[in-house]
Amino acid sequence: MSPAGAKDAKREADRIEPVLKRLWEQKKWDPESVRAAMLALGYEEERTGPKGEQLGGTLSVQGMRPHFETDHYVTPEGTRIGLRVHPDACVTAFVQKTNYAVQTNGPYLESGCFEPPFGH
C-alpha cells in the first residue's frame, strides 16, 4: 500500500470498527444486518458486469467462507466485509458469534480485498 492508501484505509477502518462492535454486541452478524449497517455509512456495494468488469461501488459483504472440520465442511455464522479504499488499499473485516475484527491490507490479484481461499 502507498502511504496515502494506508492512511485512508486506516480512516475507513476506524469508521467501521465501532459499527461492527455494536452489531456484535447486538448479536447481529448476519449478512443482511451487516450490509444495511455498512450502506448506512454511505458505502456503495460493488457491481460487476457480465465479464467481471467493475461497474462501481467499493463494498463487498459476504457470508463466512466454509472450512473443513473433521469429515465435512462447516460454514460458521457471520459476515465478512471487503472495502476497496483505493486500487492499492482495502479494509477487510468480519463479525461472528465469537468475535469481530477490522484490518487494512492491499488487494489480492486473485480475489480483491478478500484473502484467496487457496494458497497465495
Rank of each mutant, 00 (worst) to 15 (best):
A40K: 08
E53L: 12
K21C: 01
A4I: 15
A40R: 04
R22N: 13
I81W: 03
V95C: 09
T92P: 02
R22V: 13
S33C: 11
T104I: 12
K7W: 12
A37G: 05
A40P: 00
G42L: 12
R47M: 10
A13P: 03
Q103D: 06
E115C: 09
R15F: 15
G52L: 01
E12H: 14
D8M: 14
A101W: 07
C90A: 14
K51Y: 04
E110R: 12
L23F: 04
P18L: 12
P50S: 15
T48C: 10
A9P: 08
Q103H: 02
N99Q: 06
G106I: 08
S33N: 10
V85E: 06
P31H: 08
T70E: 03
R80M: 05
Q96C: 01
G112Q: 01
E12C: 14
D8K: 13
Y73Q: 08
V19S: 05
V61D: 08
A37S: 09
T98S: 13
A89N: 07
W29T: 03
S2H: 02
G49D: 04
R22L: 14
T48Y: 05
V91A: 11
E45Y: 01
N99K: 04
E69F: 11
A6F: 05
H72M: 14
R22C: 13
C90R: 06
G112N: 03
M38G: 12
F114T: 05
E77L: 14
A6P: 03
K7D: 13
E77Q: 15
E32N: 13
M64R: 12
K28N: 12
K10Q: 15
D14A: 15
L23W: 03
P3N: 11
F114Q: 06
D8L: 14
F94G: 01
E45P: 06
A6N: 09
H86P: 09
F68A: 07
D8Q: 15
P18A: 13
G5D: 00
V85K: 04
L41W: 04
I81A: 09
E44S: 04
R15E: 15
K27E: 09
T48P: 01
T98E: 12
A36C: 06
Q62H: 08
L41T: 08
F94W: 08
G52S: 00
P76A: 06
D88C: 13
Q62T: 08
Y108S: 14
F94H: 11
V91L: 10
G119F: 10
P66K: 03
T70D: 04
I81S: 09
D88G: 08
T75W: 00
G52E: 00
R80G: 06
T58H: 10
T75Q: 07
F114Y: 02
V85F: 02
T92Q: 07
A4Q: 14
T104G: 05
E32F: 15
E45V: 09
H72G: 12
F118Y: 13
L41G: 02
M64H: 07
E110M: 12
H72A: 14
G82Q: 01
W24S: 08
K10G: 15
P117M: 11
I16P: 00
R11L: 15
K21T: 05
E115D: 07
G112I: 02
H86I: 15
D14K: 14
M1A: 08
E17Y: 03
E44D: 00
P87N: 04
L39A: 10
A36H: 03
P107D: 02
E77N: 14
D88M: 11
F114V: 07
E45T: 10
T48D: 03
